[in-house]
Simulated assay, not measured.
Amino acid sequence: MGGIIAQAMAVALQRRGRQVGLLALLDAYPADAWRAESEPDQAAIYRALLVIAGHDPAQHPDLALERTPVIDLLRRGGTPLGRLPEAALDGVVRVVEGNNRLVRGHHHARFEGRLVHLRAAHDHAGRALAPSMWAPYATTLEVIDVPALHGEMMGARATAVIAPALLQRMAG
């Protein structure tokens, strides 16, 4: 969701005559990647909640993708999501559902500039997700492979790759 919003904001800023210094997306893919998917069931929503919390659902094959077992895992793991009160967690689940609908209904305009895609190089096996999906929506596309899973993109190892790459591009 964040990458889709960032690309749309860059386009909106350009339409208002503003200059965009850097458009960098952390392992985000355009709305086209999700458009054909059906409305998510509860299992998909709780799988997404795990990913948002930084868990790889594949590492928990016996976990029932239902509210109680997923929330219990989040609470035991000490994640920020796991520390939220029940009402706030209900809100997060509603936002995940709503964002899914918004993403599938979004249509991108073209960004006139360079889009830097920081790809989680250890993720998305068997899925038709590729940074090249952004090519129609930017003048140029640069891809930087980050040796991480999607859920690890804000971790220390990934940040050690991402931060210098972004600093270099912002300086140049």
Rank of each mutant, 00 (worst) to 15 (best):
A8R: 04
A48E: 12
P40N: 12
G17Y: 09
E37Q: 10
Q19I: 14
A12M: 05
R16K: 12
A44T: 15
R35W: 00
A36E: 09
M9V: 15
W34P: 01
I45S: 05
A36W: 03
A36M: 02
G21A: 10
P40V: 04
A31N: 06
D32S: 05
Q14N: 15
I45T: 15
V51R: 15
R35Y: 01
P30V: 01
R18G: 14
Q42A: 13
M9Y: 13
V11F: 11
M9Q: 14
G21F: 12
A43K: 00
Q42P: 11
L26T: 00
A24C: 02
A36R: 09
R15A: 15
A43L: 01
L22Y: 04
A8E: 09
L50R: 15
G17H: 04
S38Y: 00
E39K: 00
I52N: 13
A10R: 10
A43Q: 06
D32R: 07
L50Y: 11
I45D: 04
A33E: 01
A43H: 03
A36T: 12
I45W: 10
R35F: 08
R47C: 03
Q42I: 12
D41V: 03
W34I: 01
L25G: 12
L26F: 07
R35I: 01
G54C: 04
A24D: 07
A43G: 00
A43M: 02
L22F: 02
Q14D: 06
D27I: 09
R15S: 15
D27E: 05
Y46H: 15
A28R: 00
Y46R: 14
W34A: 05
L22V: 04
L23K: 05
D41I: 07
E39T: 13
W34K: 06
L50A: 14
Y29H: 11
V11D: 10
